[in-house]
């Protein structure tokens, strides 16, 4: 029987493999256990990506790494990347392809799936294999109000997966695998679009997805100025600041800080929700956090259903008291 390949798209940014690829390996290894006769392969597209990054993919679970290198592929552009991915799929006929639901994955995958005349499931939070060996893809839809499980009749079965919805696969230094360099010709026609510039945005909450602690404020914070207590608490805990969509819409904090379905998914060690009601769309972005503390003056607030510790209190009283205590504790050390 033929080996079935489970592919992960190992997203590269700035010439390095991004950590989300390691999270996808966790998913792929889980599927490999459930799908008979299968192996895990990583697809890596870029230019001069260091060998250590390819080996790391193997150490974290890839049996094979397909690597396509060209100066034309230095930065992500959907047209040439999609051509490369399409050709790889035609050549190696994978059973499953999972990619991160990042701006890159959400652009590359739909552009490629229609070319391959196959199905694509968006933004999955759960992946499983049924008795017949089909991929079961579970995702939130309708503003997070329902979960849907989706099957794909065609092959490959393609899905994007929410970043930070799992932990990265651990390293095993002894793991062996194969790096397959694949040459794919690109013509001028494959490169209609040019990348002119990249402007880093330091204020962007890229950090909210990387931080160990996220302190978020909602409408219950009361007014824009009060966000300073959120910042202060976050700083004392070495964390980043987030917000609900409500406060983003009000302009109390910028969109890159929005946590939730239409914002970012975070998975920190500690999430503190201040004056946030806990709408399903907000929960969709933070409920996998290790520990959740919520402060809300309404004892029936939904947020308490997902919190490890809930405090029914006015944030403008509780937070300053907490800050004071933390400052005292800090000075004692």
């Amino acid at each position: 029987m033929d080996l079935k390949e489970i592919w992960i798209y190992a997203e590269a940014r700035g010439g390095r493999v991004n950590e989300v690829a390691h999270e996808l390996l966790t998913r792929a290894l889980d599927l490999k256990e459930k799908l008979d006769n299968s192996i895990v392969s990583a697809v890596l597209i870029g230019h001069k990506i260091p060998d250590e990054d390819k080996h790391e993919l193997i150490q974290r679970g890839a049996d094979k790494v397909y690597y396509v290198d060209s100066p034309k592929l230095k930065d992500f552009l959907v047209e040439p990347y999609s051509k490369v991915l399409t050709q790889l799929v035609k050549k190696y006929t994978p059973e499953i392809i999972i990619a991160p639901a990042t701006t890159q994955g959400r652009t590359l995958m739909p552009y490629t799936a229609v070319r391959l005349r196959t199905g694509l499931t968006a933004d999955c939070t759960g992946l499983d294999i049924d008795e017949e060996g089909n991929l079961l893809q579970t995702r939130p839809a309708i503003g997070g109000n329902i979960m849907a499980t989706i099957k794909t009749a065609t092959r490959p079965q393609m899905a994007t997966v929410r970043p930070h919805s799992t932990r990265p696969a651990p390293i095993d230094e002894h793991r062996q695998g194969e790096i397959v360099n694949v040459d794919i010709q690109l013509t001028q026609e494959d490169l209609p679009t040019a990348r002119l510039d990249f402007i880093k945005d330091e204020t962007q909450g890229g950090t909210i997805q990387d931080a160990d602690v996220v302190v978020s404020g909602g409408r219950g914070i009361g007014k824009a100025e009060n966000f300073k207590i959120v910042y202060k608490l976050a700083k004392l805990l070495g964390g980043a600041v987030g917000g609900s969509r409500d406060v983003v819409d009000r302009g109390w904090i910028g969109y890159p800080h929005q946590v939730g379905l239409s914002g970012k998914t975070v998975n920190p060690k500690l999430y503190i929700a201040l004056g946030i009601s806990g709408a399903i769309q907000h929960l969709a972005g933070m409920q996998t956090s290790d520990t959740i503390i919520a402060v809300n003056k309404d004892p029936d607030a939904q947020i308490f259903r997902v919190s490890d510790l809930g405090i029914v209190a006015d944030v403008t009283e509780l937070v300053p008291a907490l800050i004071e205590r933390l400052e005292v504790a800090k000075n004692e050390i």
Binding site: I146, M147, T149, T152, A153, L283, I292, R305, D308
Partner: peptide, 16 residues
């Protein structure tokens, strides 16, 4: 190519 085979309400609970 895709089919919704099941829908259900999301579970959220860890009442602390």
């Amino acid at each position: 190519p895709t089919r919704v085979v099941k829908t259900f309400s999301p579970k959220v609970a860890r009442e602390g």
